[in-house]
Design a protein around this nucleic acid. Sequence first.
DNA 1: CTGAAAGCGCTTACAG
DNA 2: CTGAAAGCGCTTACAG
Lengths: 343, 343
Amino acid sequence: MDGPDGTDAGPARPTIRDVAARAGVSKSLVSLALQNAPRVAPGTRAAILAAADELGYRRNAAAHALVAHRTRTVGVFVLDLHNPMTADVLDAVQAEARRRDYRTIVVVGSDDADAERAELEKLVEFRVEGIIALGHRLPEGADGAIGAACPWVVIGSAHEGIPHLESISTDDEEGAGLVVDHLVTLGHRRIAHVDGGRSSVARDRRRGYRRAMRRHGLQDAVTVERGSFSEEGGYAGARRALEAADPPTALFVVNDLAAIGAMAAVTDRGLAVPQDVSVVGFDGTRLAGMRPLSLTTVGQPLLQMGTQAAARLCGRLDGERLVGSPSRLPPSLVERRTTAPPP
Amino acid sequence: MDGPDGTDAGPARPTIRDVAARAGVSKSLVSLALQNAPRVAPGTRAAILAAADELGYRRNAAAHALVAHRTRTVGVFVLDLHNPMTADVLDAVQAEARRRDYRTIVVVGSDDADAERAELEKLVEFRVEGIIALGHRLPEGADGAIGAACPWVVIGSAHEGIPHLESISTDDEEGAGLVVDHLVTLGHRRIAHVDGGRSSVARDRRRGYRRAMRRHGLQDAVTVERGSFSEEGGYAGARRALEAADPPTALFVVNDLAAIGAMAAVTDRGLAVPQDVSVVGFDGTRLAGMRPLSLTTVGQPLLQMGTQAAARLCGRLDGERLVGSPSRLPPSLVERRTTAPPP
DNA sequence: CTGAAAGCGCTTACAG
DNA sequence: CTGAAAGCGCTTACAG
């Protein structure tokens, strides 16, 4: 059981050769039978299958990949496991990939750019046939060699004009506009935005906020506080906004996760949501919809986005003719219990 | 760019052979140089490295695995991506695995037992060297061939006496006892338990609840409502508990996620947490600790558990001598804002 | 220090 | 219908 080097590698697994010996046929025939090739005699096939079963034979994926020149594996880059959006999308991606008989290898984003780059290189070594990236930014190194090594589908942020790369995302600018419209309709004027920093998604949401404020004649009330896509960022940004001389009556936060942080900041300030301060997020995650949170937010069809991403990538790998490109999806305002008229 | 079958497989990647040709040496020497073998002449090595770099050479993991008889890959089975516990643990697992130069392949649990079994088979085909399982139950099929195929480390549920399998978990029974102690100290007597069904973890927590109630002379107040480890289960179980003639003043819910659902049920009933009903979860997830939730819960050292699991599994694969087995970790009560004296 | 050869576990023409 | 042979991209003795 122990290898010569003392490692616990387990017993060597049976190979096609062992199956052939047991069934009394050649390796070739075993391979054929296992592929359900039609030209194997029924009796022979049965004997081979029985032998394989008895030995607990499982094909060696490495050997298969080597000769097939295909791995039927796609890499999935996930920026932040803690973002509840991730689980919603990832579930759908995995289900669709599985349905199309593709395997997935998940890589998680990191603060360490070099580590992230190294993980991406490993994906190349594995010869993934495509990559799905999920999050408000691309992985570090995506613009390098790996970027061109295989097709990409990015979920959640838009990237136009990059070859081999498709984006599936919501119109962030429009979504931000919906938020401002909603808050203005409720009577708010001092609406602050806790942003997400320098990513393109953050930029689009910020721009949508600014434009909508201007459209409503509220350009003088525009306030952008630096935040991030995490609870901490939302908390810090909201706290700063609330400390202002003339604090906002509503906070539009860059995403649901950060909005949860913002709600904490409001509470810590001794204020109530939504009686004193309204809070709006972005993403439409399942979690933020749950009652104790009941966050008003901008909904994105997360499941469909995940499904569509996997379908497009795998479809492309399978040589399907894909018409058009997935345009930006329309956002929708999901009104729940964290917004109310200003005090 | 397009393969003969119309698929978009991309250009063939350079092999060791291409590098050898470019550097004017043999394949063997390229292989040696790439492994940093000492017996390659410095000048030759530099030429080879340069050639590899120019060609964008990346080792083919399949070919390497085939000859190395090792994949340096471990499978990670994750029962539920939506459970916030998952992200906490998974981050730590991945970081430690990466630190030890192991790759991970994540497999997500499914309601479809056959699909889950099939995913596990794929892990065998990939020749993962070990498996880390995370959740309140093992994957479907874990007791079959794959169970013996490689070492396992299970996080979050205890399984004793199974060869090749180690568990890292909290003492669930003791944790449940801490909850009851806390609630009794606050003055509660009608404490109901919303359980997690038939898994071993659910059983242990249920048993801990029952025993502690008895210890406090509250055997007549024992009420167990069927729930699950998800929001929905917590919601349904809590609602049933609250509809009773003599409703509980406190709910001990099987985990944090279900406790969030239970809080929703309390609110929907027109009651307030914790003024009317106290709610306690189990797991100590980061998310449940955030202010808008501020759930009182039983803390488990999730990060350490993840790190330890990966360290033990990879250590074992690397032939390290591991002393003892990871015993059950002590739970701790984390008192936050969802518990208060009964009305 | 370097190269030719064998082999890892599979698949795929090619004969028979 | 079946088998012997070549080859996928690598590593590792074995000669030189």
